[in-house]
């Protein structure tokens, strides 16, 4: 049994030997890590190393097969009664996800709604915020990501970088306590990467707890508190980014970093 739920000030994310398989394929083989409030953790690793799967486990888009995952001291995906775990009803799982924002590689904006409508959608229909309040907040957020003038544009009329910034604003509209970024710049033209990273950096400076899967080592060096290198479903190495980037200890980390740096 873990003491995590009883802690007075629990870490934002606490993973204890998290395992995930898809059928016979073991994608996560015991991931243990801890992310404090206001911290930025960057996850790197080759494709297929399980970093995206781990991210998706945090907001229960994937169900953990073994181990425990807590967000802000609350067990994700299951209810604990006595020493038994019970599957969580979908409604409760949906409630847990409200506080966790997620940004996807391919933006996944709603194409039939304008930028503004994308942002107010969940606050109004999931949280029941009044429309006028939600719209005002959405305009604030659009300003924050530098897209005030694009409020009435449909996603197809925006560049990739602009779409991703709207997607970030959409996630922020739910006032999450944790933001997950799944390769947010991998689908962007090189010259558009900067504008998205800029928004993310500002967010980190504002004290948002963030878990970022990315290949942008510059961002990791500059913004992250902790850099984690994953391979084949386990954490190979982790530490402060500057130290790890300049002086990786593990052979596998060295080989990977020599390719991406």
């Amino acid at each position: 049994m873990t003491a995590a739920p009883e802690k007075i000030n629990p870490p934002m994310v606490l993973a204890e030997s998290v395992c995930k398989n898809f059928g016979a394929l073991k994608v996560l083989k015991g991931v243990t890590l801890e992310i404090g409030k206001g911290q930025v953790l960057v996850l790197v690793g080759p494709s297929g190393s399980g970093k995206s799967t781990f991210l998706r486990c945090i907001n229960h888009l994937e169900t953990v097969n073994a181990g425990r995952l807590y967000v802000d001291g609350v067990l994700i995906g299951y209810r604990e009664r006595g020493d038994k775990l019970h599957e969580m009803p979908p409604r409760e799982a949906a409630k847990q996800r409200r506080d966790i924002g997620m940004v996807f590689q391919h933006f996944n904006l709603f194409p039939h709604r304008t930028a503004l409508e994308n942002i107010v959608e969940a606050p109004i229909h999931v949280k029941g915020v009044k429309k006028a309040v939600a719209v005002e907040r959405a305009r604030d957020l659009l300003k924050q990501v530098g897209l005030s003038e694009k409020a009435d544009a449909y996603p197809a009329q925006l560049s990739g970088g602009q779409q991703q910034r709207v997607a970030i604003a959409r996630a922020l509209a739910m006032n999450p306590k944790l933001m997950l970024f799944d390769e947010p710049t991998s689908a962007l033209d090189p010259e558009l990467v900067g504008e998205v990273l800029g928004v993310m950096k500002k967010l980190a400076e504002g004290g948002m707890t963030m878990v970022v899967v990315t290949h942008e080592m510059g961002f990791a060096r500059e913004v992250a508190n902790q850099l984690v290198f994953m391979d084949e479903g386990i954490i190979m190495e982790s530490g402060p980014p500057r130290e790890m980037l300049s002086n990786p200890k593990h052979e596998r980390t060295k080989a990977f970093l020599s390719k991406v740096l």
Binding site: N59, L61, P90, R91, A94, K95, R97, R98, I100, G101, M102, F104, H106, N108, L109, F110, E121, A122, H125, V126, K127, R170, A171, M174
Partner: peptide, 13 residues
Amino acid sequence: GQSEASTALGMSW
């Protein structure tokens, strides 16, 4: 990705 994004925003199925 559309239903995934909706789920991540806390929408029910």
